[in-house]
Nucleic acid binder design. Structure first.
Lengths: 116, 116
DNA sequence: TTGACGCATGCCGTTATGGGTATACGATGG
DNA sequence: CCATCGTATACCCATAACGGCATGCGTCAA
């Protein structure tokens, strides 16, 4: 097995939300549960297309589905987005500070490393 | 031009950070500028591999490069991560609150955590 | 039971991706 | 000028990703 193309989107939230349409689905679901067809229609995609995106989102745990008679309602489960929020938050000081102070901060880190 | 595979990683920060190794590069760069070879070594990848990831990061604006003699130093520019942080932040209330149709599954998890 | 509806899946084709290896290129040192 | 170092690129391979279309499957209504 020589060359992997990319980590499977199926196993990684970062990857799951890399797809713009999947992000749109998540945004729509903030307003409440929806059946597949409705999502597909609102986002201008085919029903199979929506189903596939929803599957990815389900497999990383960002949505859950519930059978409601003939329909299947998809609902948001945003807990998986928290790690992403926190990871990016780890860079917050780098966009909140001026680059001068940033440089100083970097110098501090360099110093610290050298003294270890 | 029938089937596009995916939005180019080149044009989208969400996509750029979907790659675990690229995330590692960004984390490393928080400690300061580094030449390609050093990054490659610290992350256990080949130099061309590192260069390619850095190129993607550069094209979405997450890193900047600066020539320093024979070397080329890469530095972090985390401003592009802010939109990601804010986008995920838009879901914060969904992981901090319990809301109507979130079923017993979620409740169970909360219970479990409180009892730890 | 039969049809219609709602949705998931399978298959196909195209494109992008990541890794590896070899190589081209710019800068520096002799 | 020539050799070398540091880096970027080109090329190739294998695979995963998306989209479209057709179809399968379960559910509800008549």
């Amino acid at each position: 097995m020589a060359a992997m193309a990319r980590a499977a989107t199926t196993s990684d939230v970062f990857n799951a939300i890399a797809e713009p349409q999947r992000r749109e689905i998540l945004v729509l679901l903030r307003a409440g549960e929806r059946p597949v067809t409705e999502l597909a229609q609102e986002l201008g995609m085919t029903q199979p297309g929506a189903s596939k995106h929803l599957r990815v989102l389900r497999e990383v745990g960002l949505v859950r589905d519930r059978k409601a008679g003939k329909q299947r309602l998809y609902g948001l489960d945003a807990r998986g987005l928290r790690p992403v929020h926190e990871w990016t938050g780890g860079f917050e000081r780098f966009w909140n500070e001026s680059f001068d102070r940033l440089d100083a901060y970097v110098q501090d880190l360099k110093q610290a490393r050298q003294e270890e």
